[in-house]
Structure formats: C-alpha cells, structure tokens
Amino acid sequence: MYLLAVDGGGSKTLARLQHSLSGQQWQAAGGPAQLSNNLDLAIRTVRQLSLQLCQQAGIGLHQVMACIGLAGAGNPQLHSAFCQQLQLNFAAWQLTTDARTSLYGANNGQPVVMVALGTGSVAMRLDQDGSEQQTGGWGFNIGDEGGGAWLGKLAVRQLLWQLDSDEGLTSPLTQALSQHCGDNVSTVLPWLKQAGATDFAALAPLVFSHQSCPLAQQILHQQAAAITELIQCCRGRRALPVVLLGGLAASSQSLLSADIGKLLQAPRGDALDGGLILAARQLARISPV
C-alpha cells in the first residue's frame, strides 16, 4: 500500500507519495488549492498531482491511502463539495485542513502548539489527551493576522495613505510597492480591483527586505504582535512547545520577543509529514496488524 499526503494553500500545493513498507518517496508541486478562493482550481490541482505521482511510481489510485490537507477545508459546504467532485478512486482518503496536517507534522504527532504562517495564518493545538483545538484561520477577509496576505494588505494601506498625502511616496517601502501596485489612482485602482489574497501575499517579501525603513519596521512590529497573540490564545497556560511553520516562519521568528522565543522549538516535520502520519493511521484502522 502507498500513502499520499497533499498540502494545499493559497499560493502553492505540494504532494508526497510514500510506499508504506520501503519508505520510498515521490514528490510533486502545483499551483494553489485554497478551497475558499477557487474550489474548481483546488480540485484540478489535487487531481493532477495525485495522478502525476501515481504515474511516477507506476501504481494505480486503488493502491493509495490519501490524506488531503487544504486551506478552507474547515468550511462544511466546501468540504462536502470537494469530496463529491474529486472523483479519484483511492483505496480510502480523507479531506482535512492544512492546519491539521501541519499540526501532526510539527512535532511528529506529539503534543504541540503549531502556528502556520503562509499566505494566511492559523494556530492549532494537539493536547496530551489527543484532543485538537484551532485558533484563528478565519480567512483573508476578516482574519489571518500575521500571514503574508494580511502583511501585504497593511503595506498597501500605507501606500494609499501616502498617495493621498501632500508629500507623496516618501518611504522606501511604498516606493517599492508602487512598482507592483501602481503610483497613482489610475494604476492603483485596477490593481486593487483584481487583487486577491495571493497577490497581497506576494508583497510580503518587500516588507521584510526593507527593514531599515521605519514604515516597514512599524508594520513588522504589528505582525509580531499578531503572531504573539495567536500563540498565547492557542497555548493558554499549557506547558506545550510552540513550532512555527510556513513560508514566513523563519523571517518572522527573529521579530518575536525573548519570552516567546523560549517557547519555540524547531519543527520535527511539515504538513506533508503530518499528512503521511494521518494517512498511516487511517491505513492501520482499516488493516490492523
């Protein structure tokens, strides 16, 4: 039997196929698979990667136990629609959130608080008794504080303030942003009209690369505060280690306070590792030793 893990978010999707006995692996990457952004695209991406990996391994879908972890899968309607429309003949499979697969990968299935910082943000806790609790992850429109799209949105808001001011673009950060979003009303408005979470997240690296700019420092201070609040809300008073995962984890960690830094430990795995853990558990339930 083979185990398949899929990790899909707002910017990219990764998939890993592993033979359950030998441990041999195959991996592939694709575009976004964020259910709340584009359900049809998510379905196409997961189908493409699943079939691609099976082809690489020379196996059929019926030999695969899959765990698909996607952003937006916590929405019951989207979860149901994806399950009805995927139409892949796996031996068995489950759809869960990318936060949950990240949680199980972060500390190799052991108790932990996991904070994922990518296009969006979410924290999740695995307690000693095996119970799980999610904090945040409410989506770009209202939440995802500390994530890349939220960070990019803060930066663009500052760009708009400076465009409205008498002084114009005086900040190195907003000058750099104007190269991507426009430097006047006639260019910025069309960009704003079509911009989604992925577009805003693509601007986050500019904030980090302009840390000598006071405006960028101000925005990154807000990000550090948002991440701290996410950690504290999810962890509470529990004596659990905290693991940061995602594309912004490394660059964000240095911005956090010393007290928060003492709680952090290096990740033991990622969302794909977590997906393989959950797929293996499903296989064990179906085929107990």
Rank of each mutant, 00 (worst) to 15 (best):
Y2H: 13
Y2R: 05
L3C: 01
A5R: 09
V6S: 02
G8Q: 04
G8P: 07
G9F: 13
S11E: 03
K12F: 10
Q18P: 08
H19W: 02
S20G: 04
S20V: 09
G23R: 03
Q25C: 14
W26A: 07
W26D: 05
Q27F: 01
P32V: 02
A33E: 05
N37D: 13
L41G: 01
I43P: 00
T45W: 06
R47H: 12
Q48Y: 10
L49G: 09
L49V: 09
S50T: 11
Q56I: 03
G58I: 10
G60P: 08
Q63G: 12
V64G: 08
C67Q: 13
G69F: 09
L70F: 02
G72S: 04
G72R: 03
N75E: 12
S80R: 14
S80C: 13
F82C: 09
L86A: 02
L88Y: 02
N89Q: 15
N89C: 09
N89W: 08
N89Y: 06
F90Y: 13
A92Q: 14
W93C: 11
L95T: 06
L95D: 04
R100N: 11
R100E: 15
R100P: 00
R100H: 13
T101N: 10
T101W: 06
T101V: 14
G105Q: 09
G105R: 07
N107T: 07
N108P: 06
V112K: 06
A116D: 00
T119P: 05
A123W: 03
M124A: 12
M124C: 12
L126W: 03
Q128T: 14
D129F: 14
G130D: 09
T135D: 01
W138P: 00
G139I: 12
N141Y: 11
E145K: 11
E145F: 04
G146P: 04
G148Q: 10
G152Y: 08
K153L: 14
V156P: 07
R157K: 14
R157T: 15
Q158V: 03
D164R: 13
E167V: 12
G168K: 11
P172D: 10
L173V: 07
Q175A: 09
S186R: 10
P190Y: 01
L192N: 01
L192P: 01
Q194G: 00
G196S: 10
A201K: 02
A202V: 05
A202D: 01
A202F: 02
A202C: 08
L203T: 06
A204Y: 07
Q211E: 15
L215Y: 00
L215F: 00
A216F: 00
Q217L: 09
I219C: 01
H221P: 03
Q222M: 13
Q223S: 06
A225I: 14
E229G: 13
I231D: 00
I231A: 04
C233Q: 15
R235Y: 08
V243D: 05
G246P: 01
G247K: 01
G247A: 02
G247F: 05
A249Y: 11
S251R: 15
S252M: 06
Q253T: 08
S254C: 15
A258E: 15
G261D: 12
L264N: 04
P267T: 10
R268L: 15
L272W: 00
G275N: 08
L276G: 12
I277D: 03
R285I: 03
R285T: 13
R285K: 15
